[in-house]
Write a protein that binds this DNA or RNA. Sequence first.
RNA 1: GGGGGUGUAGCUCAGUUGGUUAGAGCGCUGGCCUGUCACGCCAGAGGCCGCGGGUUCGAGUCCCGUCACUCCCGCCA
Length: 612
Amino acid sequence: MLQFDKIDAYCPRNELNFGVCHMHRYRTHNCGELSEKDENSRVKISGWVHRKRDHGSLVFVDLRDHYGLTQCVVDTSDSAFSIVESLRNESVVTITGFVKKRSDETVNQNLTTGEVEVSIEEIIIQSEAETLPLQVNSDEDAGEETRLRYRYLDLRRDRPHKNILLRSKIIQSIRNRMIEQGFTEFQTPILTASSPEGARDFLVPARLHPGKYYALPQAPQQFKQLIMMSGFEKYFQIAPCFRDEDSRADRSPGEFYQLDLEMSFVEQADVFNAVEPVIAGVFKEFSDKKIDNKFQKISFAESMLKYGSDKPDLRIPIEISDVTDIFRGSEFSIFAKNIESGAIVRAIPGPKCGSRAIADRMNSWAQSEGAPGLGYIIFANEDAKGPVAKALGQDKSNEIKSKLNLEDGDAAFFSCASEKDASFIAGRARVKIGKEQKLIDETVFKFCWIVDFPMFENDELTGKIEFSHNPFSMPQGGLEALNTKNPLDIKAWQYDLVCNGIELSSGAIRNHLPEVMYRVFEIAGYGPEMVDNKFPAMINAFKFGAPPHGGIAPGIDRIVMLIAEEPNIREVILFPMNGKAEDIMMSAPSSVDDKQLRELHVRAVTSHQKNV
RNA sequence: GGGGGUGUAGCUCAGUUGGUUAGAGCGCUGGCCUGUCACGCCAGAGGCCGCGGGUUCGAGUCCCGUCACUCCCGCCA
């Protein structure tokens, strides 16, 4: 086998070949750039053996690098023949040879370099590949575990490779758009203090402070507000965020990235005006799907009523209605009784769902979701059918029919429960109907702002008043509202950006007044010492001249996932963790030496330990 | 923590009502092939059917348990 360091000594007598001595060690061209105009030139290319076609006395090798694919060819008359023949896929080689124009009938139109091929004169094996655990040259995905364990192989494949490049380009575009708007990029600490609000923290033991811990930031929330208080006006950062919560298809465990931004002297509309062109611009730049420039605004209350969710998929042309009044005091006694004790009824239109089979399926689905069931009326031949219609009577059934704009052949479904539960199950039913009846327009991105979130909510179990989002938002109406209104009626300057049923972003106009901060915590049942102890930086900064400010933080991974049209967020992350927050490629998390633990003043508790 | 789905060759998957020696494609090994481009043809190796237990004359298939992966609920200011 030829070693790469012998190349310098290799200098064929033949005059034509003389140039090889002065060539770059690995390449004169990449695998995506050779064309007719390079005909007859001597070139050197390096890359991976993508695929071989062995005809016995003639072998074709598709050589692949980051830039493309070039067909190389060798036959028995060439000295390199036996080496080429023995190559396994994904071995890395350097090929020196002549560019030859292909005959008309052998041109490959599917390849950018398909007009030419490289006639192999010399091949140097840089790195041999063993039998592969997954096939790089296949469109077929390997299993998730194999892909993650051998992520570097998976990432050589076309689609994963392109997804990661897309991510990089999107981030660059976002960065340019933010800077063009006058935002400044800052970095904030990764080792910081644990903060009581929000998700579970990742903790880092402090070696110099026995018993104390740093936390990784769940978001640079307090820092970005403090940046405003430092007199910088427009901050942004492609910020890593760390939250120790369980994974979902659109939620990578452990860490994710946000386009974190904050602005001073702004109201809600100013934040929207800053963010909309960035988001719309990026989606337009990288996707062929249609989007509206103007993002719809929907109040939280309206969204919960019409869509049963605070992240509605507006591509589904179904709107839920409240029909409590129609069922109140009706002959359909289960609902009527529940309404007397405070339940409500939501109706979900089911276009083309007017069959017993569909209705039964929806009902058992609802039961599997923990609901008692899903009532239904089937409309057919100007008649309302089913047990609900029978008890309710034709008049009230027809009232529902017209209220929901239904036709014969359609159905209406009903969830009856507490407002929260009824909305929730209706919202899930809406999505299920949308998917099953194929009502979702896959060619559009539908954006909306969900606004006017409640400042507080009741804890279902304890009845205690809690922050519904975060304690840093400014309540609408300010201190006066806090002092005069029922806390549960107070709304916050708090908003989410939603696209196609996915929450892209959450933000708020922040409170910047110490008296509001203390009062807000007081309503939630905490004394001023809680504020002083847990948020010393913020509350102190508020006391030395804090500008009114607000911001938002769109999720980068989700933006890329939507644009790449991938159903899973792992597809747009270089080295993602699995569902149990393990990196099976790197073996993280891992055990550490006792010495390391002693230095950190940490001792393992073994009673709950598994698979040690 | 709870619920659903999946687990069969290196990879992707098929496997009928429980019934002989568990199959296919790709990959791998060997042979043939000078114009292929997912090359083609021939032959071969490769299996703890996730693991443990049970039912049965007989289990990849049925039952119980368990583990892994995945989707969902909880959780995610």
